[in-house]
């Protein structure tokens, strides 16, 4: 189970990455996040939306209301160029963190002195 803080921090790259595969609407994005987390999601689903709105405001995504097959209106989100740049940026940062953590967590490196 992920902690709240970590979830909040990771939500942005997560969403950006999901949207890289093409435009998508809120419910599907949430389903995708759920899937990735193996069903262990700490935050309420509604919380996704303020994040999306914030991203829209920052110019990372664009939105469009579309009529879906079952006759419902859905708001689709799509990455902008700025969004793609942001995704790359996030990726670099996360990979850096990942690399750092990996290095410190090598069994011989960490426990060597004890």
């Amino acid at each position: 189970m992920l902690s709240k803080n970590l979830m909040a921090a990771s939500s942005k790259p997560l969403i950006l990455a999901i949207l890289r595969g093409g435009e998508n609407y809120g419910y599907q994005i949430i389903q995708r996040v759920k899937e990735l987390s193996g069903g262990e999601l700490e935050w309420a689903e509604g919380m996704l939306y303020p994040v999306l709105h914030k991203m829209q405001k920052d110019g990372l995504v664009q939105t469009k209301w579309k009529l879906s097959d079952n006759g419902r209106m859905r708001k689709y989100y799509r990455l902008t160029t700025k969004g793609r740049e942001a995704l790359n940026n996030e990726k670099q940062q996360w990979l850096k963190v990942h690399g750092m953590l990996e290095k410190v967590w090598q069994p011989d490196a960490s426990l060597g002195t004890t």
Binding site: A44, M47, K57
Partner: peptide
């Protein structure tokens, strides 16, 4: 329930705006 508490939603929306 899964969508979440309106008060918290409100807070998040407020933050984002």
């Amino acid at each position: 329930k899964s969508i979440g508490d309106a008060k918290r939603l409100e807070k998040e929306y407020f933050k984002s705006r």
